[in-house]
Simulated scan of single mutants.
Amino acid sequence: MEMSELNSSSELRLKVLKGLSLGVGGLAVLVAIGNVLVSQSYIYASFVMLYALYSWHVYRQTAKTTIFNGHKYIMSASLTLLVIVGTFLKPTASGVFFWTLVFPIIYYLLLGNKAGFIATVCLFVVQMSNIAFQFYAEQYFDMLTMMLNFSFCYVTIAIVSHVYEINRVLAENKLSKLATCDPLTGANNRLALKHRYQALQDQQTAFHLLVLDIDHFKAVNDEYGHDGGDVVLKAVVNTMVDAAGSDNVFRQGGEEFCILLENVTRHDALAVAERIRKEIEHSPVVYQQRAIPVTVSIGITQSEASKGVQDINRQADANLYAAKAGGRNKVVASNG
């Protein structure tokens, strides 16, 4: 699974941008032709045609693997400006004003909650001012009735768009959490670890990798059952989270876990590992009124620019095995 599959917002925004650039861009060509042939608005038609050309450029860009993030803001701003100017320059009867009602939907889908809300409010204020200007310029419609009807329609569409976007993001976050969270312990899972590795490599961020294994965990399961083993796993994760933070703790499988510590010294990484080891050793896990003694072995290594993730994992595992071979309940770190 790739990171893009966990972030459907990026994919949605790209699809909206692609559809907007193709659909509205095509309509812009027709609008430009209509302004030339019908109303002889050559200047306005030129701006509309420029927007259509830019839309075609953006549509071609959406086919590429990477696309300039600012396109969505430029597209939104330029289309908004065309409608505002069209409303201001043309008679109300031309109907340009009605394009305003689709903008809350475009804003929220393309820009997200915060930017979408700001853009929606700003456009509302501008277009209400436009209504007042058109009334004093034309004086053939009831300004109050026009304002009330526009306000009710626009605000209703804006509220629906806002509620939809909020709930869509919440649902996306829940799905992402389910995909990257270990359901038993609440720690991040191997998929989350894979993406964290990728992010650290892309950013060229130095980190220490701590690999932790619960000593004699099979004996715990044999004596206390899998329910007792589950309680031990949860307790170990809680101790790790207290020491390193929930974002840095990952379950690799079974009784093996790892911690990623970014931009810390070797001394700090050792201190975190020793804190975890000592707290687990001195805090027996209580299960069915019985105290289960638990210890852990920890291997530590530091990332290097010349090493890939597999090499770093291999070195951390080697240090973990050295800790176990040395009698368990130990911390072993790479030299240097």
Rank of each mutant, 00 (worst) to 15 (best):
F88C: 11
L109P: 14
S78I: 05
L110E: 11
I67M: 10
T66E: 13
F97M: 11
I106W: 00
N113Y: 15
L110W: 09
V96H: 01
V102D: 02
I74Y: 01
S76C: 15
V102Q: 04
N113L: 15
F103D: 06
Y73H: 02
G86N: 02
L79A: 14
T66N: 08
T80G: 04
G116R: 03
L81M: 14
S78C: 08
K90L: 07
L110G: 13
M75A: 06
F98S: 15
N69W: 02
F98R: 13
F98Y: 14
L109W: 06
G112S: 15
V85D: 01
G86T: 11
Y108P: 15
T80I: 01
F88D: 06
L109N: 13
S76V: 10
L81I: 05
L110A: 12
S78A: 13
K64Y: 06
N69R: 03
L111V: 13
Y108C: 13
P91M: 11
V83H: 03
K64Q: 10
Y73P: 00
A77K: 04
M75I: 08
L82W: 03
I105C: 06
P91H: 12
G112R: 13
I74F: 03
L111P: 05
K72G: 05
T100I: 09
A93W: 00
L82Q: 01
F97W: 11
I84C: 06
P91C: 03
I84L: 08
S78V: 14
S94Y: 03
A77P: 02
G95W: 12
